[in-house]
């Protein structure tokens, strides 16, 4: 059983948003959740995070040694050259004391350990698919399947691209029948909202 703070205010609070300060009861009823936004380069991850977030999109960085691992003690100050992995993220205040953080995942090839950290405790993931380069999202799909993290496929409909039926994408990605496949425009806030709702509903069905 997942533990949730027992003083979590009940749902339907009309006084939504307003930051994490004003949680009913103590300010420490605050709960933060995390959803990942994955997909290949240029699929629209940063765009979607920005479109749906209430704060301007933020970036945070992990510093890595040149070996591609988090710097360790021996690296010390001699490690002048470090690799910086930047993550775009945003925040949505769902109601007082309940914030949803969206993290765009960094490039898929070298930074799996960053993904591992990001994925830990994640509620689920949106995987953005660009039909011009559908194979680019295979690694994301594999990653979430292997870890049992619920995800939905968001087919980003760029202009001038052929429109595919969701079922074609499902087949091409060899998805389980239960995985939702949705068409979207990552620039539209309403689409982002809908994707997140469908994802959380999908998470709920897996209970």
């Amino acid at each position: 059983m997942a533990s949730v703070h027992s003083d979590t205010p009940s749902c339907g609070d009309p006084d939504k948003a307003g930051g994490l300060r004003s949680a009913a009861g103590s300010p420490w009823g605050a709960v933060a959740l995390k959803i990942l936004v994955a997909g290949g380069f240029g699929a629209g991850k940063t765009t979607l995070v920005g479109a749906v977030s209430e704060i301007r999109p933020l970036r945070t960085e992990e510093q890595l040694s040149e070996l591609g691992r988090p710097v360790d003690d021996t690296a010390g100050i001699e490690a002048k050259r470090t690799t910086t992995v930047a993550m775009d993220f945003g925040r949505i205040d769902l109601r007082p004391g309940l914030a949803l953080y969206l993290f765009g995942t960094p490039g898929q090839d070298r930074f799996w350990f960053v993904w591992d950290e990001l994925a830990q405790g994640a509620l689920g993931a949106l995987v953005l698919a660009d039909t011009r380069r559908l194979a680019d999202c295979f690694p994301s799909v594999d990653f979430f399947e292997q870890r049992g993290i619920p995800f939905v496929i968001a087919v980003n409909c760029f202009e001038g691209t052929e429109t595919y039926a969701p079922e074609d994408v499902r087949e091409a990605l060899d998805l389980d029948p239960g995985v939702p496949v949705l068409l979207c425009d990552a620039r539209r806030r309403e689409d982002g909202k809908e994707l997140l709702i469908r994802l959380v509903e999908h998470v709920a069905t897996r209970r």
Binding site: A2, V4, H5, T8, S10, L33, L94, R95, R189
Partner: peptide, 28 residues
């Protein structure tokens, strides 16, 4: 400082929490 760690979601996130998230998203 004081720190709140994230909810340990394990495999089964609390149903009420999920409902709160969905309602919050709808209300955006």
């Amino acid at each position: 400082i004081s720190v709140i760690r994230p909810v340990p979601l394990a495999q089964l996130p609390d149903e009420r929490l999920l409902r709160d998230v969905i309602n919050g998203l709808r209300a955006l």
